[in-house]
Every structure is written in C-alpha cells, then in structure tokens.
C-alpha cells in the first residue's frame, strides 16, 4: 500500500512540492490540502509523497550496498580459513563496536562538499548517504554469511561438486551461496528499515539531504519548531516513517518464520 502510494502518488496528487501559498500557511487538514500545509503554505501530502520516494530509495539502495559488502566479506572469510578469516572477523567486530550514528554524522559532515561538487546537490547527497549507511551496516550480514559458509562447505553436496572438479568460484556461486541466502534476505529486509531510520535521523539532525528537498526526516525537522500551533505538520511525516518501518519489520519477521522451519517459537 505505502509503496504503491509513494510510487504512483505524484501522478495522482499533482500539486507541486514547492508551490508556496502564504494565504494557506500552517493550515490543518482540509479538502484542498488533505494533510495540511507548512509554514510556507506548501502542500504536505505532496511533500510527503516525494519524500517517501527518497526515503524508500535510500533504504533499498543502502540495503543493497550492505548486503553486497557483507556477502563478499562473509564469503571470503568463510571460504578461506586461517589468517584471512581471523583478520576479516576482527575487522567485523571492530566495526560492530563503532558507534554508528556519530560515525555516520562525521562522514557526512566531512565529505558533504566533495560529493556535492562531484554529483550535484541532490545526487551527491543521495550517493553519499547510501554509501555511508550501507558501508556501516554490512557486519551482521557478513557474520551470517560466514557462519552459513562454515557449515555448508563441509556438506556432502559441496564435497560432490568439488569431486567433480568444480572451481572454487563456481562452487561458491552455484552451490554454497544460494543455500546461504535465507538468513541474508531476512537481515536485508530489516536493514531496509534501519536504513530508513538512519536516513531520517540524519535529515532530522540537519545533516542529511538539504532542506529544500523534502524527505520525511527533514519535514519533521522543519515541523518541530511549530509543534504548538501546527501539530499535524509533525504528526504526518512521523507516522509515515513509523508505518514504513513497522511494515518492513513485519515483512522481515514473517520471512524469518517462513524461511526457518526449525524455529518453533
């Protein structure tokens, strides 16, 4: 539902996101503006639909980055036992111990201007945020993949493939990886939710997307100074984040139950 609304919404609700109408500023929900307006009289529904696209896109893209890095690290560590494995796992543990949000903020703070110069205002912010969020969330996936690899590579069917002369790459790509993907999908789903929260947090703190691009977090940030006179302005973006995150978490939970028949409870 939410995904559909975000994907097709701008077609159905053709009010411009930056149409300024001071006569209608800070209005509550009405027929003309179903979710009300903000301090410049911009229509909130349109802004939220647009922001939802960015938030969901960031969530999905960051998840892809995290999963790709995680699978790579996990697969390499799982296949090569010994020193490489130990170093990679030490690195993973180190990243797990790092405080995520301060580091996210630090990276965005330091690299903001370079990326803006390289890819333009919007594209730069998008690429930077996706890379940073994804690059700091791969550890769980890496650990899962490694654990799966360690048990799978000793199984008989892998032994058989190896006996048939399959190369190491083919062994990993054709035989081990598909069997290891179940938990990765679950972790990936939950990562999408975490990435959406991370992006909204960054925007809320004023270090995400520039404030003329409405994401759910930045709309909420603008709204927080008007809580007493325009509560609807803060409630709707917050509810949007909450609904998106809880929906994704439910999907993840359902997938876990579906993919893991051994878990009874």
């Amino acid at each position: 539902m939410l995904f559909a609304a975000v994907a097709f919404g701008p077609i159905l609700w053709p009010v411009a996101i930056n149409e300024i109408d001071f006569a209608a500023k800070l209005q509550g929900p009405s027929w003309k503006h179903p979710l009300g307006t903000d301090d410049l009289g911009q229509d909130l529904l349109a802004r939220l639909l647009y922001g939802g696209r960015i938030s969901l896109a960031v969530g999905l893209a960051a998840m892809v980055v995290a999963v790709v890095v995680g699978v790579l690290v996990g697969a390499v560590a799982g296949m090569s036992s010994g020193r490489v494995d130990a170093v990679l796992m030490w690195l993973t543990d180190l990243f797990l111990a790092l405080p995520l949000l301060p580091l996210l903020l630090l990276l965005v703070y330091l690299f903001r201007d370079t990326f803006k110069g390289m890819f333009g205002v919007e594209g730069g912010a998008f690429i930077l945020i996706v890379a940073v969020i994804g690059g700091l969330r791969w550890m769980q996936v890496a650990r899962l993949v490694r654990a799966q690899f360690l048990s799978l590579r000793e199984k008989e069917f892998v032994e058989a493939a190896r006996a048939l002369g399959a190369s190491k790459v083919r062994l990993v790509a054709q035989h081990i990886l598909p069997n290891a993907l179940g938990p990765v999908i679950v972790a990936g789903t939950i990562d999408v939710a975490a990435a959406i929260i991370a992006e909204s947090t960054l925007s809320f703190l004023g270090l995400g997307f520039p404030s003329d691009i409405p994401t759910w977090g930045s709309v909420l940030r603008d709204a927080k100074d008007y809580l007493d006179i325009a509560p609807h302005w803060a409630l709707f973006p917050g509810a949007a984040i909450f609904l998106a995150v809880i929906a994704i978490n439910f999907i993840g939970d359902g997938l876990r139950d579906a993919l893991d028949p051994r878990r009874v409870l």
Partner: peptide
C-alpha cells in the same frame, strides 16, 4: 514491536506534544 519501530526523534516529538503542550 511498535516500540522499536518508532524512531526516537518521533517519540520525542510526540512526548513534547502530549505532555508539554
């Protein structure tokens, strides 16, 4: 489930809205 799906910045604003305002 609801509790950890709610981001802290939104609960914070909700609390302000309800208890302060």
């Amino acid at each position: 489930f609801v509790g950890f799906s709610l981001p802290t910045f939104f609960t914070g604003l909700l609390f302000i809205l309800v208890f302060s305002i």
